[in-house]
């Protein structure tokens, strides 16, 4: 991917407190178009919270989030649907409407934009074929396996050809085989030009892929590096204390570089 690097999502000095015991502190990160980024960290590190800020289901206390032309500090409620149509989001629990067919679930994302039915039919036929579920288009989600349901969710998320796909633990409910298939599908989608930001707590899962990894720990970015792991990530950042991790950050020269 040698085309001009364009930042399509950025988080700048973002802090967000939740409850009494948790806060994201001064988060900085950027995702360029066509990039694939793993957002890794133990459960409770703040991955979901950070993604929520990025698809603007929540807003920072400090700092700002920029996705496409949408800026969190200048965001109006009315523009949120507009943002959602230009990004894709998937979750661990799929979030499909169980009383609608696979086709209807995917079509929903296009219907809300007011797209014409011929266009919807053509596009969905194409996407469902790509995710390998065209033959199950009239099935209802409960009749599908977890992996298949996640494929439907992915098909819905990319129906409007988004520039970026946010994935919050998309393989969290899946067996190893389905997990591998979903990851492959995400890579395939990424190869088509869609940036992917995938959160997962499963370090083992991502260590072998050589994608960029952002390691989140106790609400802070402890590591942000494009790397192939030789050992365990915890060896790399030297234990789990944040201050220690932070001291290693400069050593690896991570986040600051791309900021203007």
């Amino acid at each position: 991917m040698n085309q001009e690097k364009r930042i399509i999502a950025g988080v700048y000095h973002v802090s967000r407190g939740l409850g009494k015991h948790f806060s994201l502190e001064d988060i900085n990160l950027q995702v360029a178009n066509g990039e694939f980024v793993f957002l890794v960290g133990p459960s409770g590190a703040g991955k979901s919270t950070l993604l929520k800020l990025m698809y603007m289901d929540d807003f920072p206390d400090k700092g700002q989030v920029v996705v496409g032309q949408f800026v969190s500090t200048r965001m109006k409620r009315k523009s949120i649907p507009d943002l959602r149509r230009k990004i894709g989001i998937i979750f661990q629990d799929f979030r499909l409407l169980e009383d609608r067919t696979v086709f209807e679930n995917v079509a929903l994302a296009m219907k809300v934009t007011g797209a014409g039915m011929p266009e919807i039919k053509k596009q969905i036929t194409d996407i469902l074929t790509r995710v390998g579920l065209y033959h199950k288009r009239y099935d209802y989600p409960p009749a599908l396996s977890g992996g298949e349901q996640q494929r439907v969710a992915i098909a819905r998320a990319v129906a409007n050809r988004p520039a970026i796909l946010f994935a919050d633990e998309p393989t969290g409910n899946l067996d190893p085989v389905a997990t591998k298939n979903i990851l492959e599908l995400l890579f395939k989608i990424n190869a088509g030009g869609t940036a992917v930001l995938m959160a997962t707590h499963d370090i083992e899962l991502v260590r072998s892929f050589g994608q960029r990894i952002i390691y989140l720990e106790e609400g802070r970015v402890a590591l942000d590096k494009e790397m192939i792991f030789v050992g365990d990530i915890r060896d790399r950042i030297g234990g789990s204390s944040v201050s220690e991790s932070a001291s290693r950050l400069s050593e690896y020269d991570i986040t600051g570089g791309e900021e203007e």
Binding site: R84, L96, L97, A109, V112, T113
Partner: peptide, 16 residues
Amino acid sequence: SRTIEILKLVGATNTY
């Protein structure tokens, strides 16, 4: 509530 949440997720307007 789940349906509403999903509709919001895929970018349905409040009117819709």
